[in-house]
Amino acid sequence: MILMIVYPLWFIVIASFSDPADVANGNVWFWPEEWNLDGYIELLKQEMIWRSYFNTIIYTVVGTLIALAVNIPAGYALSRRDLFGRKWISFFYIVPMFVGGGLVPTYLVIKNFGLLDTFWVMVLPFAVSCFNIIIARTFFRTSLPETLWEAAQIDGCGTIRFFFTMVLPLSKAVLAVIGLWTAVDIWNSWFNAMIYLSNENLQPLQLVLRRILIANESLLGVASGSLASELRSLSEMMKYAAIVVSTLPIMCLYPFLQKYFNQGVMIGSIKE
């Protein structure tokens, strides 16, 4: 099972360093026939790569922090049995999980708030996740005993202090899971940037990589002969290199959160 999961990832890595002809002919299995860095060199020559990489890192860090700041307190509030109108508020969060407003109304809302073509359009409008709020609510309700809150009240602890001093330190699992899910979602996001960002200096890595690969395909359509063969080979190497460049940071982040992820990933399967 480990081999089935790891090998495709490893194949992408070695294919990014291999001649596309060797990959197409099945000569590359566990190690490149001949090391070739042309795909990475050509990809990193693109002017917007480094800027977009920085943009994506900032979007991911800031967006994840904002998402945790709004989703975790909302999930905790919904887990409190003394919250007035708790069932109706929960219903209010559950409905958008199945019914969305649509692209055009969302675009008009973002435009009216003045967020179009700004940094904040990538981190604010979609920070609230109803799914993550329900996950957090389930975790708090099943993992934190009511007696803990009662003991805190006896010692004179208020709701806000209880949340920050006791709930959050005991909730590393759900924080790690929701944080990782959010970070991966923001890191891989390109559609929102394509719709709401026209300023190239604000565009994230995924959108820039998409534009580069599409431009290469366009060049292939007008080239012929040996030039077409060379461009096709370079395009294939750039595709593999783009996959490695765009996924490596998130893959490096996962091992540090794995122990919390393993503990918290089953939260949503617990029924009330």
Rank of each mutant, 00 (worst) to 15 (best):
I160L: 14
I94A: 14
Q206D: 05
R137F: 01
T182P: 07
F163P: 01
G100F: 15
I270S: 14
E200Y: 10
I160Q: 09
F98S: 05
Y254A: 11
I133C: 01
L144Q: 06
P8G: 05
P20T: 08
E230F: 09
V95M: 15
L197S: 00
S189T: 04
V174N: 08
S189A: 12
F54S: 15
F119G: 02
T165K: 15
M237P: 01
I89E: 00
V95E: 06
S143F: 02
G39I: 04
L144A: 01
M48G: 05
N201W: 10
V13P: 00
M97Q: 10
L43R: 09
I267T: 13
V208D: 03
I195W: 06
Y53T: 09
I12S: 09
F54Q: 15
G114S: 09
L148C: 00
L257W: 03
G39N: 07
I154M: 13
A173M: 05
V104Y: 12
S18P: 00
P32S: 09
L44A: 10
N112P: 11
F162V: 08
F54T: 12
Y76Q: 01
W187H: 01
D38R: 06
V128W: 03
I134D: 03
F261A: 01
R86A: 02
P20A: 13
G221T: 12
I135M: 15
W31V: 11
D38T: 13
I2D: 06
I178R: 01
V121H: 02
L231V: 13
G102I: 02
F30E: 10
N112V: 03
T138E: 00
A15M: 10
E150H: 06
W120L: 13
N199L: 08
W29C: 04
Q258W: 14
I2V: 14
S171C: 07
M122F: 14
L219H: 10
M1N: 09
P255V: 08
L68W: 04
V104L: 13
S218V: 15
V61C: 12
G156E: 12
I58E: 04
I214S: 14
A228C: 14
Y254Q: 08
E42V: 10
F256I: 04
P255L: 12
I243D: 00
V109G: 09
E236S: 13
I160P: 00
N25L: 08
P169Q: 04
V62Q: 00
V184C: 06
L115Y: 04
R141E: 11
A67D: 02
F164P: 09
G156W: 05
D82N: 15
F54A: 15
P73I: 00
L219P: 07
N25S: 13
G158N: 10
S218F: 11
N27I: 04
F139D: 03
A183W: 02
I89H: 08
S52P: 04
S52H: 04
T64C: 14
S218R: 15
I49Y: 12
M48D: 04
